[in-house]
Amino acid sequence: MRAPLTDLPVAFEDVSLRIRDFTILDRVSLHLAPGAPTVLIGPNGSGKTTLLRVAMGLIEPTAGRVTWGGREHIPPQRRAIVFQRPAMLRRSTAANIEYALAQAGAMRSDWPAHVAELLGLVGLAGFEARPARRLSGGEQQRLALARALARDPEILFLDEPTASLDPAATKAIEDVIRTVAARGIKVVMSTHDLGEARRLAGEIVLLHRGHVVESGTAADFFAGPKTDAARRFIAGELLI
């Protein structure tokens, strides 16, 4: 019997992305394997968002290769992404999730149970009939998380999921991320917030100017950064 196809691990082999004269990713090599969350950190413009988009398969690199479970150029079947500013479909909260369920091929008769479970998971039970675009920023982020999880992903990319949220909304999102990671879904997220990285990360990848400056376990990274850039970043200095 053949093993089921999987999107993991996601492997970057010398991946570069150049648009006109700008180098956005510079010979990035990464191996995203099942396990604790991988957190991408780095200053603005370091390439975190682009790396997530390339890892999702939304952008083709101009050099190098990306593989999902050892295969190249495969559509996003078992991976999902939540963008920093997710677009809400002009439908109800429940209908946003139903749309993702339909695209993922879930049986229509199972939708109500899935919707209830996912909205419960992200703390939006009772919001089913509300227009998604009328939800607050934090609620929209949580709905986007539920919508992404409706695809039953093996790997979930989150682009600064708590940017511009207040502490309570940030905690709600982080709780969901922990729950999701505990269920065995590989989380790969970007953040500016070193505190958040400490709270959530199993692995850290520090990016600067499109280049991976340092990567490793979160414990090692914070306890003994190996590069000057990492030391300065952890110390709160500006990396320019």
């Binding site: 999902a80 992404i81 997710p86």
Partner: peptide
């Protein structure tokens, strides 16, 4: 508004 979301949902 929708382009990336729809692409991500294949």
């Amino acid at each position: 508004e929708y382009r990336e979301e729809l692409a991500a949902m294949n």
